[in-house]
Design a protein around this nucleic acid. Structure first.
Lengths: 196, 196
DNA sequence: TATTTTATTGTACATTCGTACAATAGTCAA
DNA sequence: TTGACTATTGTACGAATGTACAATAAAATA
């Protein structure tokens, strides 16, 4: 039969991950054959057998492909200062995606980029991103997105006696005691800083 | 025919998202029928038709289910201080997952929980998580995980003349000039803080 | 060189899949 | 009560899928 030079699929994990994130599913054997330039879907059967041993893919009930552990998201290891962690003592957030880990209530969540310096003393800097949960009712000490004088800002939600006050985590900003009704857009559930 | 009380599937998005994150694929029509307690896969065909209009699901080439925009991850909106953003002016990280956004090089990445206070002046606090890229070569100004005196710490990577120095972002810690060879585990690519 | 191992192709088949079609019961408003 | 609309069930069919089997070329090894 006509036959191409042998190849052995290069960076299978990368290609498969790309397909998975692009299509939100794993390829069929025939699609994978196309992807890796094979003429027969059976070439994929051949490779799937070793990919399962290396954890790149798994099979579901009907034999279809699923992403294996090696395609899975980020691992959470131990602490920085407590000495460098050995892979043995990994915490097991392994299987969880950052999305699931950070976003509890998807429908009610959104993200903002921080541009002021009113929260620097709380370690939130301009350029950071904050995840907001719209649905949550703020507790004392929470960081909230609130409307003050027709402007939305990020402040600590606190109480003085029975009154609610909004405190900035920057000595240069005053604490605000809202007169009338107070609009709160949501509670900050996490902060993300991304270095280039 | 025997028939159950009418139901109209409740929180379809939640159920479907649960299935998708658990199985890493969308259900077949028959599986979805089981999931929502229907006796006929055709009940799902019926509902898929309206789920596609509300963006909960999409169909692929062969009619199989894919997660729709409404099942998709977090949206990135505008800036905090620049006034509260209208949904119109969303940046379009919509379709991107936090994982993809934060983790460039999956194989070479891992996560650490910060336990020291050596970087507080850079806004990295004890309890924060840092994502590390093993593969990247550190540039001046990067935050790195380095081995100093048989202990791993997080420091700014800088240069004095031709020498590499490791500087803490906390006035109480000294700057370190490594004598011999310097082991660097990776470069910090992002910081994540999670409030309870 | 000869031999073994590894990689690729093609075909065929049972299984699973989505969906078209038809029937009918539940719900609601007039 | 009647009629219109909505929701559910069952069946059947063509298309797509994973895989078993067999053949064989390419590369590695002796």
């Amino acid at each position: 039969m006509g036959r191409k030079k042998r190849q052995k699929p290069r960076n299978a994990s990368t290609e498969l991950r790309r397909f998975y994130t692009e299509h939100q599913r794993m390829p069929s054997y025939r699609e994978a054959a196309t992807l890796f330039r094979y003429r027969s879907p059976n070439a994929i059967t051949y490779w799937v057998n070793r990919w399962t041993t290396t954890g790149i893919v798994r099979r579901d009930r009907t034999g279809r492909l699923l992403p294996g552990p090696a395609l899975a998201p980020i691992r959470l290891l131990g602490n920085v200062q407590a000495g460098f962690p050995s892979p043995a003592e990994e915490e097991h957030i392994d299987t969880l995606s950052l999305d699931d880990w950070l976003v509890g209530n998807r429908e009610a969540s959104f993200m903002l980029k921080v541009s002021g310096d009113s929260m620097v003393d709380a370690g939130i800097q301009p350029g950071d991103y904050v995840l907001i949960d719209r649905g949550r009712t703020p507790k004392k000490g929470d960081i909230v997105i609130a409307e003050v004088d027709n402007e939305w800002t990020m402040k600590f939600f606190e109480k003085r006696g029975n009154r609610i006050v909004l405190r900035a985590a920057n000595r240069r900003y005053p604490t605000i005691v809202p007169h009338q009704e107070l609009k709160i857009a949501g509670v900050v559930t996490s902060v993300i800083r991304k270095y280039k």
